[in-house]
Nucleic acid binder design. Structure first.
Lengths: 211, 211
DNA sequence: CGGATAGTTGACTTGCGTCAATCCGCGTGG
DNA sequence: CCACGCGGATTGACGCAAGTCAACTATCCG
């Protein structure tokens, strides 16, 4: 099932009947405040499960949005319920996936609460890179990263203008460059240091629980 | 099982074998940064399940700390696994509880990302009051609330000094008073307005899933 | 060429942090 | 009964990180 860039998979307040597995493309989960400001909760990437919470707690508290063209498969809620019943391993897999989501959200919360703008950005990019599973800590690393500065601002709790200044700093200090949808890490260790990044096992998807 | 004020139920990095049901008292879940700063993730209150994530993702990514003397019962991880297997309802109950936790954390994340200090505080207190289940939106409301200004600061992502100033403002504007472990809401609607609080169904514990 | 979308930059303002006292309530022991 | 110490709360002066406002530029695309 293809969804094109700029469309929603799920709207806040909606009563969802299915969740999604993301196969290709980038999405984000976000909430909107009554003032119109947006806070991005997470950026699911291919392989992630989206909207589990939305089928457990209805109506849903967040929106899901396609940042690029996206390929997903929808999973009907009744299927999840069946999976819970079927085998302990499947139930455990669902639960683990939820726990992993939560861990990522908690990490994001800590970023927002207790770090400066540049630390937040550095920490975020390192985590992102780790999630993309290119783990080599040394040398030049290049990734596709179609996030706009506006998206980053809404995720990292700052203004567009300020994330721009932060990115400039990171670029000038030869730490990383984000341009034209491409993220280049010039100095992994340098960025990790600014972000005070602690390697975290729950970031990587747990393969053992997939069947 | 009694735990006295100031003790930990769980340490970050530890490999937990059980989770807890909180019966009496107040606790908090937090993470520590390498700089020594602390970010409080949540304040579980009686009736809440603590540390589900810690038995699913090991070693655990957060600490659990008793803010007051606390009464809990420990639940061995094997029991949870059995519960998953036993009945679809029990599996669903565990999953719902996890989802509710996550919803609360997401709400907290949005607070930190996109609200000013006074908005964060106001929003936090309204949510707290709702969780304590005294729902009446009008009149004078009084609760036990043993959180120190330091705890609040670490939860709301600001300094002790600033939360003090914010509390003073809320007091002077006759909105709420926090003193000597007692929270008094003078003007519920006024506070809710500052916090731009949207009532949220997932805040209240879901009784239907308890058995 | 014009119009939309995203990124950049500068000047100015402000919310919140930092540093440094001081205060208050309370328990303990001389 | 008073002195002392301790943890938490309070206040003031000052500085800075990040927000706001307002252009301006680059790129793409029809």
């Amino acid at each position: 099932m293809k969804i094109e860039r700029g469309r929603h998979l799920l709207h806040e307040g909606q009563t969802a009947t299915d969740m999604f597995v993301l196969h290709e493309g980038w999405a984000c989960a976000y909430k909107t405040l009554s003032t119109g400001r947006r806070q991005i909760i997470s950026f699911p990437i291919p392989g992630d499960l989206l909207g589990l919470r939305s089928i457990l707690l209805r109506p849903t508290d967040h929106s899901l949005f396609a940042l690029t063209d996206v390929v997903v498969s929808a999973v009907r809620d009744s299927l999840i319920l069946k999976a819970l019943h079927r085998s302990r391993n499947q139930a455990l897999a669902v639960l683990r996936s939820a726990a992993r989501d939560e861990a990522l959200i908690v990490e994001h919360l800590v970023r927002l609460g207790r770090r400066s703008a540049i630390e937040r950005a550095a920490h975020f990019f390192i985590e992102l890179v780790e999630r993309l599973r290119f783990v080599g800590p040394v040398g030049k690393l290049v990734f596709r990263c179609p996030l706009s500065q506006n998206d980053l601002a809404d995720a990292l709790g700052m203004t567009e203008i300020h994330i721009n200044r932060v990115l400039r700093q990171l670029r000038e200090r030869k730490l990383l460059t984000l341009r034209a949808g491409e993220l280049i890490i010039h100095d992994f260790n340098g960025v990790a240091k600014i972000g005070a990044y602690k390697p975290n096992s729950s970031v990587a998807r747990d393969l053992s629980s997939e069947d």
